[in-house]
Amino acid sequence: MITTDVLVIGAGPTALFAVQQLGIIGLKAEVVDNLDKVGGQCRELYPDKPIYDIPAIPVCTGETLTKNLMKQIEPFNTNFHLSERVEQLVKEGTKWKITTNKKKIFVAPNIIIAGGVGSFEPRKFPLKEAEKFEKNSVFYSIRDKKYFDKKKICIFGGGDSALDWSIELSKNSKVVLVHRRPEFRGTPKNVEIVKKLEKDGKIEIETPYQINSIEGDNQIKVITIKDDNGKIKKIDTDYILGFFGLIMKLGPIAEWGLNLDKKHIPVNTENFQTNKEGIFAIGDICTYPGKLKLILSGFHEGALAARGCFKLARPNEKYRFEFTTTSKNIHERLGKKQT
């Protein structure tokens, strides 16, 4: 069990800056994120795209922004619990007991949800019947490639994940690569290798096709694929793999008894608290009149939510506003030498 002042859900830019604001006012935070790295959407979805509206930074990428924010919170030695998802919240006395999918337990008076638009999950095949085969013959990631040895495999997708695995699995298995259009968006090198493997008879490529049906009892036996004009092809296969990128799902957040407005959590704009005391929501996931989904708005929301947390984390103390330029307390927290 880990006790802390604030549990922050999410590790995107808004979350990271909230950690900074918490640190500045002397509160300790722990951060949980479903992804395997910090940075959230701006690192996962558009790491190389330029961002032009961070104040005083004319242009930077999601990657750089994340690195700088991590640098900024270095003095606070924050613990990050990555590849981990918060599943359950229960109020115990004045504190929240928070349980993750890895059964880790946190106890904190405050929770800041900076969850973007939820957690990233693989996009799945559009067929309902795909779900029932997910345990043994439909996959969206590969844990152990030996499982696929000497089998018939159909891989769907046009990006590098689809190409990488087609190349890798074709060494020991029969691979059919299916994509909705003749062009692949993977790196030119991967595309070149795959085309060569096709020429050498090591991989079959079927374009422009998409999945149309899956048949089988416990395990997939046959699938059909269909093109835009309705032409259907049948493929015998043991496994199908789909690499369609990630999608954001609200997930367990929807189960916590918070008011929801579509996929967003309404908050007050004084301290960004939700309808539950001690639970705050900031960044893209929160909504209020005039809400802008900008990173800079998320920073502001985090600053105010941090002050909101102070009240419950230090019930016997009075919060005093201080500037980072002059405050000795803050300089100490930042590990700066006194002048």
């Binding site: 996009r123 559009p126 997708g157 046009g158 990006g159 994509h179 909705r180 259009r181 062009e183 968006r185 998409q210 369609f244 990128g245 999608i247």
Partner: peptide, 10 residues
């Protein structure tokens, strides 16, 4: 076009 690869039933 790249993003449409990830869309639902394009």
């Amino acid at each position: 076009e790249d993003m449409l690869d990830m869309a639902y039933q394009p």
